[in-house]
Design a protein around this nucleic acid. Structure first.
Length: 338
RNA sequence: CGCGGCGUGGAGCAGUCCGGUCAGCUCGCCAGGCUCAUAACCUGGAGGUCAUAGGUUCAAAUCCUAUCGCCGCAA
């Protein structure tokens, strides 16, 4: 059975490698064109690099059409003469003609418990929405977005402090195992699937930069989930305001939730107010006692402790380091740009 | 030739617009002291060609030019 792999991100890599390692006949890889990203000769951030590297390491030919949906792109796929195409995190929506190209169709590794979280960013949404469990589903690809029959599914608990990047890292091997299993079953005949329950469908659309803006009036829990969901991309951010200084954009990398008052923080601080136990505004009642160093920010509910952040033009740093360089004073706050 | 920020002792920053009194701050490190004890406190100490190379000037971290490196945004 001639198999073509279609995938781009790191999520696809374990599946690709599993197929190769299992001795399946992987005859080609279709991946996104290499993009030079960044300033001059991009130091980092390239997409498609990893997959292409794996392919060349195993002597597997690679196709990188600008769009798979053009006649040219489709021709490149057909040139591999695949019986089956395995898709994982490819990044382009496939047209019916493309899906129909291989005789056995296409299957997709999707990082959610379908029918929940159909779309481009299922892992991030699962965290953002506060799910405690997610998983991987192998589906048959149909013209609808992630709406095909489910061929296999496995679940996994979401850890309380896990970021989307970390969770995806754990889901990828699970997906690889499931996918390989389905592929091997397909070799011995048609595999039946179950339909997705249309009433349970939820969407996980592509993430945008704008989604990273933190609204400090929301609950600490919600902001915490947002930060984890948008890590490592597109990242949650806010602006650092100091009296008499220009606002500074800051990416919030990691936070920790705290009950308000427990660490000597006054109850009535406006959302976004920055506090440190060393310099606590002298107002409002205190409930707490513990001296825990750190950078605390008032939210709509509790205080949130920021553990790791990255000011514009700087590298990521711990809150401790940040506070040495930018000791908190009165009127310091996080908030929207202006 | 897309836009922008940054490079100051081991870490994070201030100082740069308005050149000289600027090499500073918060930590870390080393030694000593205090303490039952500590990431607490006190005293003392080591450590920097202020990214690099030129230029302007009596004088440059600070102004000009070029180079290297790091980062963010936009695609």
């Amino acid at each position: 059975m001639r198999i073509v792999m279609m995938g781009t991100g790191t999520f696809a890599e374990p599946t690709f490698e599993a197929l190769i390692a299992a001795g399946e006949q992987v005859v080609g890889l279709v991946t996104q064109p290499d993009k030079d990203v960044g300033r001059r000769s991009g130091t980092s951030r390239q997409t498609g690099k990893g997959m292409a590297a794996i392919a060349s390491a195993h002597g597997i030919p690679v196709a990188q059409p600008q769009s798979i949906n053009t006649p040219e792109g489709l021709a490149e796929l057909k040139a591999f003469a695949p019986d089956l195409v395995v898709v994982a995190a490819y990044g382009q929506i496939l047209k019916p003609e493309v899906i129909a190209a291989p005789p056995l169709g296409m299957i997709n590794v999707h990082a959610s418990l379908l029918p929940k979280y159909r779309g481009a960013a299922p892992v991030a949404y699962a965290i953002w929405k506060g799910e405690t469990e997610t998983g991987v589903t192998i589906i048959r690809i149909t013209p609808g977005l992630d709406s095909g029959e489910m061929l296999a599914q496995a679940s996994m608990a979401i850890l309380p402090t896990e970021t989307a990047g970390e969770l995806e890292g754990r889901l990828a091997p699970l997906g690889a195992k499931l996918c390989l299993d389905v592929v091997q079953r397909m070799k011995s005949g048609p595999v039946s699937g179950t339909k997705q329950d249309a009433t349970l469908v939820t969407k996980a659309p592509k993430l945008t930069k704008a989604m990273g803006a933190i609204d400090w009036s929301k609950s600490a829990e919600e902001i915490g989930r947002q930060v984890r969901a948008l890590q490592p991309f597109p990242t949650a951010y806010t602006y650092f305001h100091r009296p008499g200084k220009d606002a500074m954009r800051i990416v919030i990398r990691r936070v920790h939730q705290h009950l308000i008052g427990v660490h000597g923080i006054p109850i009535h601080s406006a959302p976004g107010t920055m506090m440190s136990p060393l310099i606590v505004p002298q107002d409002g009642p205190y409930l707490g006692i513990a001296q825990v160093p750190g950078l605390f920010v008032a939210t709509g509910t509790n205080a949130l402790r920021v553990d790791e952040l990255q000011p514009a033009g700087k590298k990521s740093m711990t809150a401790e380091e940040f506070l040495r360089g930018y000791p908190i004073g009165e009127g310091y706050r996080f908030g929207p740009e202006s």
